[in-house]
């Protein structure tokens, strides 16, 4: 039976504390979920404290960006994003063969070349060669399964700047690392691959109205005639539990909050995500 669409309410709160206070700051937030074939963003707002004027645009990758500056001294910056999104099950995967992928090589070039996060090391190249099997769709599945088994999920071992190769060396990491290793291997095999940033509902079958601690999540998309999603961290079907915010080559293209501030002090960041399945009326 085809799963019913879900309606999810997501509240993503990020707080930066500056010591000493920042004199001014300039920021860009990528937290507004996309509307895609699989999901519809019903409403989305971003609240900034201290209050500041927001400028919105869609970037090169199609992600909605909220840009703002805070011209006065501030010890703290809070970004609160609230979105209501209807999510559906995964779509088709296409059936492109290796030849079709090769002929798309130039058009898909951005998703086939390494980046600093997804550089090809001899080890990753060797792993990739061992995973080629049957057609591209089968190969994507083999890669995702391999990544899931090669890395142990553990927070605190890797950081936002960790590359795929470094995470693989460590043998441990978080969703960002699973996704980076996945796209690195796929690209090496000639399969266009994107890094996806978004949210994951922690429960496969949540009851309506139950608020859960959720998480910022990352997974991947591969192109085999169609773009389709895989979740190497959890090895679960990507569907109603996953909310897409942005897609790019790697984490750097979809960073949820990036900014610079004047003041020269240190900053600490805390972040929480709450996610609730709500009734679709």
């Amino acid at each position: 039976m085809r799963p019913q669409p879900w309606r999810l309410e997501i509240e993503h709160c990020t707080t930066f504390t500056y010591d000493p206070p920042a004199r001014s700051s300039y920021n860009e937030v990528r937290m507004v979920p996309l509307t895609t074939v699989r999901q519809t963003t019903m409403s989305a707002r971003v609240e900034i404290t201290p209050n500041s004027r927001q400028y919105r645009y869609w970037d090169y990758w199609g992600t909605q960006v909220v840009a703002f500056d805070i011209p006065a001294s501030h010890p703290q910056l809070e970004v609160r994003s609230v979105a209501v999104v209807d999510t559906g099950p995964a779509g088709g995967r296409g059936d492109a063969g290796w030849g079709a992928l090769e002929s798309m090589g130039s058009q898909m070039a951005e998703f086939l070349v390494p980046t600093p996060y997804t550089a090809w090391t001899p080890e990753l190249v060797a792993v990739a060669e061992g995973l080629r099997t049957g057609g591209p769709v089968d190969t994507v599945e083999a890669v995702v399964e391999w990544v899931h088994s090669a890395l142990q999920y553990q927070q605190g071992v890797t950081g936002v700047h960790t590359s795929a190769a470094e995470a693989l060396d460590a043998g441990k990491g978080v969703c960002q690392d699973f996704a980076h290793i996945g796209v690195t291997l796929l690209r090496r095999l000639g399969i266009p691959a994107r890094y996806v940033s978004g949210y994951l509902h922690p429960k496969p079958d949540p009851s309506i109205g139950e608020e859960m601690a959720g998480e910022s999540h990352a997974w991947i998309e591969a192109w085999t005639g169609d773009w389709w999603e895989s979740d190497p961290t959890n090895l679960v079907a990507v569907g109603t539990r996953h909310v897409v915010v942005g897609r790019g080559r790697d984490y750097a293209d979809v960073t949820p909050v990036k900014g610079i501030y004047a003041g020269g002090g240190d900053d600490t960041m805390t972040t929480t995500v709450r996610i609730t399945r709500t009734p679709r009326d």
Binding site: Y57, W58, D59, Y60, W61, G105, S106, Q107, A109, E110, V113, D253
Partner: peptide
């Protein structure tokens, strides 16, 4: 010009001078 394949897309996307923040 990239869709028409007069200039290969990969040539533009791999240019160090192609700055994605300039898009739009």
């Amino acid at each position: 010009i990239l869709d028409a394949e007069v200039i290969p897309r990969r040539l533009v996307t791999s240019s160090p001078g192609f700055l994605r923040p300039a898009h739009g």
